Amino acid sequence: MKKVKCGIIGSGNIGTDLMIKVMRKSKHLEMGAMIGIDPESDGLARAARMHVPTTHEGIEGLLRMPAYQDIRVVFDATSAKAHLHNNALLQRDGKKVIDLTPAAIGPFTIPVINGDANIDEPNVNMVTCGGQATIPMIYAVKRAVGRLVYGEIVASLASKSAGPGTRANIDEFTETTSKAIEILGGAERGKAIIILNPAEPPPMMRDTVFTLSQGGDRAAIEASIHEMAAAVQKYVPGYRLKQSVQFEVIGDDAPLRIPGIGFVSGLKTTVLLEVEGAAHYLPAYAGNLDIMTSAALVTADHWAARILAKEIA
């Protein structure tokens, strides 16, 4: 069966895990090149052992590779700053770009929320690992209530699962995730916090989601949350609610002060999540890695399926 060739820029944790997923799980993609900047990186060594063309000369090295002309979609798993440069060169050559950095040049994309809505855009952004894990829960509350005033997420990751790219993007992580809480999640105001936990043994990815809403009832909110969790589990089997959904009434006598909005009463909903990774590259505690690469793969696979269907027709 014909497949679409892809390239991955970034031979670190995310890029290497994504490469393995493409080779093991993708229905419509095949590896065309793995691109890094460290000739001694484990990702490039693994790619070479798997007979994937490699270069340690970054985007410029990719442009010189014979395989480049056959590559139609490129995943960028570098950093927000590097993506600005990479994207400009790839767009010049008409490549489809799946952005796994917080650069947010293209539209935010979370498979269970807006799926294929932006799939034909030249660049689509996968938000952040914390965003992929938590914003579906915020959206689940939004669709069950009259007004979603506020959404806040706290993403706790094992320090060992955060490579140099993640660490270089902490500020962009909070800014991009906060913005996506509003744009995709539907909250009038969003806030994101990331915690790198150095505990040993490394803990599983844990996420806490808080929302403040008005209208709707608890049963409808809880049903919507469970339905959304099941939808995410279709591509991230280790995604699960850690505890029952918690509710607290915020009365008019003690309203919460929401920056930019003012004092608001309503229903506070708390969702506690755990994300266990598939351990394709890093151990299972790195659910942050797994949900990001899984979401990117689903998005690119759907795009490739559409392209191949059009060519056959």
Rank of each mutant, 00 (worst) to 15 (best):
P107S: 07
P107Q: 12
P107H: 08
F108R: 01
F108G: 08
F108H: 15
F108E: 02
T109W: 08
T109E: 13
T109R: 13
T109H: 03
T109N: 13
T109M: 10
I110N: 05
I110W: 08
P111I: 10
P111D: 02
V112R: 00
V112A: 12
V112S: 12
V112I: 04
V112F: 09
I113W: 02
I113E: 03
N114C: 12
N114T: 08
G115Q: 12
G115M: 09
D116H: 15
D116G: 13
A117Y: 13
N118H: 13
N118F: 06
I119C: 11
I119L: 10
I119A: 13
I119P: 11
I119N: 07
I119W: 10
I119Y: 06
D120A: 06
D120Y: 14
D120W: 10
E121S: 12
E121H: 12
E121W: 08
E121F: 13
P122E: 11
P122C: 03
P122S: 09
P122V: 05
P122N: 11
N123Y: 10
N123A: 11
N123L: 12
N123E: 13
V124N: 01
V124C: 07
V124D: 04
N125A: 15
N125I: 12
V127I: 13
V127M: 06
T128D: 09
T128E: 01
T128M: 04
C129R: 08
G130A: 05
G130I: 09
G130H: 07
G130E: 12
G131L: 05
G131I: 01
G131R: 08
Q132K: 03
A133Y: 11
A133K: 01
T134G: 09
T134S: 15
T134I: 06
I135N: 03
I135T: 05
I135S: 09
I135M: 01
P136V: 02
P136S: 05
P136C: 01
P136L: 01
M137H: 05
I138M: 10
I138W: 05
I138L: 05
I138V: 15
I138D: 00
Y139H: 15
Y139D: 12
Y139T: 10
Y139R: 15
Y139V: 00
Y139W: 14
Y139N: 11
Y139F: 11
A140W: 00
A140V: 00
A140K: 02
K142Y: 09
K142G: 05
K142P: 01
K142M: 03
R143Q: 15
R143F: 04
R143K: 15
A144Q: 02
A144D: 06
V145S: 09
V145M: 09
V145H: 12
G146Y: 05
G146D: 04
G146L: 03
G146F: 10
G146R: 14
L148E: 08
L148W: 07
L148A: 03
L148M: 09
